[in-house]
Every structure is written in C-alpha cells, then in structure tokens.
C-alpha cells in the first residue's frame, strides 16, 4: 500500500484518464476540465523549468559568480532576450527583429552545414551501393536505388511527366505509397500502444486487477 499522496495521485490520474477518454463518446465538461488542466499544468511546469534550469544558472548565477570578461559578455544574450519581449509593445516591436535576426542567422548557418554534413552526404553515400552478384543484399540494393531514383523523378516538376520521366514517376508513386503505408502502420501501432499503456495503468495501478 502506497502513501496517501500516491493513492490520491493515482485516483486523480485515473479520473483524468477517463475524463480524456470520455471525449470518444462526445465532448463534455469532464473532458474540457482535463484538457484545460493539462495545458495549464504543462505551461506552469515548463515555466519553472526554464527559470530554474536556464535563466537562473546560465544568466543570473553566471553573472554573479564569473569575473572579468565572462561576467560582462553574458549581458549581451541577456539584453537580446529582453529585447525579444518588445513584441508586446507595438511602438517598439521593431526592436525584436534584432534578436530574431540573430537567431535566424545562427540557425541557418548551423543548419546548412549540419544538413549537408549529417544528412545529405551520408544518405547519398548510403545510396551508392554495390551490386556484385545475385544475393538478397544485391536485390535489396537494386530496389533501394530504383526507389530513390524514381521517387526523385516523381518530384521533378520542371518537365511534363511523359515518356521515361512519366514511367519513372509512376514507379516512384508506388514507392511513395508503400512508404505512406509503412508510416500509417507504425502510427496505428503507436496509438494502440498508448491505449495499452492507459488500460494497463487503470487495471494495474488503479484497480489492482493485474499483477
């Protein structure tokens, strides 16, 4: 038997689970209560995390504890963060463009190199596969290369999809559809897993009818 806090928490979680699931029948006040609670609690929790894991240790504590150049340079990101809040005041909202430009610039710079180095090149390399015989691996390699090339043909819109390009695009659609099917299957599995998790909680933790 758990503590009183655990028992109350479990029953509360059970009530909120049923309240959310009740939406499947139709919209109702219990669902709305649970939904609003979730949004409110999440926002409050997130705010506390940001204050105690970001603003305090990385801005306030750093400023208080550091000496010399390190102490003062921290004021630059601090000021940029404050300027971002100027969006709330229409007359000086234009100031927020500076931190946004700073963020976009860094994001673009990092993103371009990371996507080339960490995605495009490794994926292209992984598509240049050898075919040296008639093994299952060779067949798999051929299918992979055909899939990549024909899918790219489908997404080439600068010429009408006729002739060789049209035939390739039609094969590409088959690969795209298979990909969508796989994604749908996995998504279904994920949703059923969530239901299994909630039912296990209700049967095991709340009702104690499962070991």
């Amino acid at each position: 038997m758990g503590s009183m806090g655990t028992i109350i928490g479990t029953w509360l979680a059970g009530f909120l689970t049923l309240a959310i699931l009740s939406f499947l029948y139709k919209d109702n006040p219990f669902y709305k209560l649970a939904e609003h609670l979730y949004v409110g609690v999440s926002a409050g929790y997130w705010l506390i995390y940001v204050v105690f894991f970001d603003v305090k240790p990385m801005l306030i504590d750093t400023f208080m504890n550091e000496t010399g150049f390190e102490k003062w340079i921290i004021l630059i990101p601090g000021a940029l963060g404050l300027i971002m809040l100027s969006r709330w005041f229409p007359k000086i909202a234009w100031l927020s463009r500076w931190p946004i430009a700073f963020t976009v610039g860094i994001g673009a710079g990092l993103g371009i190199t990371a996507n080339l180095q960490g995605y495009v090149l490794p994926q292209v390399t992984a598509t240049l596969l050898p075919v040296t015989g008639f093994t299952v691996t060779d067949l798999s390699n051929i299918v992979l290369v055909i899939g990549v090339v024909t899918t790219l043909m489908y997404f080439y819109f600068s010429k009408p999809h006729k002739g060789v390009l049209g035939a390739g695009a039609r094969i590409g659609i088959v690969f795209i559809m298979i990909s969508f099917g796989a994604s749908f299957g996995y998504t279904l599995m994920a949703r059923i897993s969530l239901l299994i998790g909630r039912l296990h909680f209700l049967f095991h933790d709340l009702l104690h009818i499962l070991d």
Partner: peptide, 10 residues
C-alpha cells in the same frame, strides 16, 4: 535529427 546531424556528424 539534431543528435545525428549535429553530434554524430561533427
């Protein structure tokens, strides 16, 4: 994606 593109690649 970030782990792979920024940490594994670099």
């Amino acid at each position: 994606d970030y782990w792979v593109r920024y940490t594994q690649a670099r």
